[in-house]
Computed example of a mutant assay.
Amino acid sequence: MNINATLVNYYFLCHRKLWLHAHTIRMEHTSEIVYEGKLIGEESYPQRAEKNQEVEISIPYPPLGADGALTAKIDFFDAKKGIVHETKKSNAKEKAHTAQVQFYLYLLRKNGIAVSYGLIEYPKLRLTERVTLDEEEEKQVEGWVNEIAELLAQAHCPARLPVSKCRSCSYFDFCWIDEP
């Protein structure tokens, strides 16, 4: 099993969603909100494909087993300037977005790739947020990864969040099917 940037994002949203996704119970394909976010990411900056490259990176992570790794697929990385670009639909889940970009920065650095910072772009809001990774934040990323590994090792799925936090989640029907 691997820990990827999606799981880091989910760690800050819902431990249940994280566990389910990691155990191959995926609901994102049923969500219009997820689809809309994907479209925004693909259509907001069409010129990027020409100038920037998609990057897949990983580092071994033995606590997950012999083949365990930390992995990420970064959609837009400007290698010349060392800038990671991440496009998001809204800023409602800001900490999760920041953590995801910090995870990218962490993996790039651990692979010896020069990286300056990350930019989270919210095209619908016309906002851009700069994300950095200092030594203290690097230790935080390592802490998140260790906590995620512990969550994934649990035999049972974590408890669901209160329904008020779940309404727009792609796992809503899965988690709340037994409620009227």
Rank of each mutant, 00 (worst) to 15 (best):
K17F: 15
K139A: 15
V141W: 00
A149D: 04
D78I: 01
Y106C: 00
E129C: 10
E94M: 14
Y104R: 11
V8Y: 03
E138K: 04
E56K: 13
A149H: 04
V163A: 11
P180Y: 10
K110M: 07
V34N: 08
L119H: 03
A99N: 00
D178F: 02
E150K: 09
V141N: 05
I33Q: 14
A66I: 08
T6G: 11
R16D: 03
S58W: 11
L39K: 07
I83D: 06
I177E: 15
E54I: 12
Y171K: 11
P60D: 09
L133D: 01
Y11E: 01
L161R: 08
E54H: 13
K124M: 07
I25R: 12
V8H: 01
W144P: 02
G82F: 03
P60H: 07
K139F: 09
N9P: 03
A159R: 11
A49K: 13
H15K: 14
M1T: 09
P123C: 04
S168D: 15
Y35I: 12
A99W: 02
P123H: 03
W176G: 10
Y61K: 08
V163I: 15
H15C: 05
S58R: 06
V34Q: 13
C166E: 04
F172P: 04
K89C: 06
P60I: 06
K110T: 06
R109P: 05
L161P: 02
L133C: 05
I120C: 00
T128W: 00
Y35S: 12
V115A: 15
V34C: 13
N4R: 12
A114G: 09
K80P: 05
A153H: 10
V145A: 08
E43H: 03
K139S: 11
N146D: 13
C175V: 11
L161F: 07
V141M: 04
K110Q: 15
V55T: 15
N2Q: 08
Y45N: 03
E135Y: 08
T98P: 03
C157K: 14
L151P: 01
M1K: 14
A66T: 12
I83P: 00
C166S: 13
Q102L: 07
G37R: 09
A79G: 05
A114D: 14
F174H: 15
T71G: 03
N4A: 09
K51V: 09
Y171W: 15
Y61L: 07
K80I: 04
K165L: 14
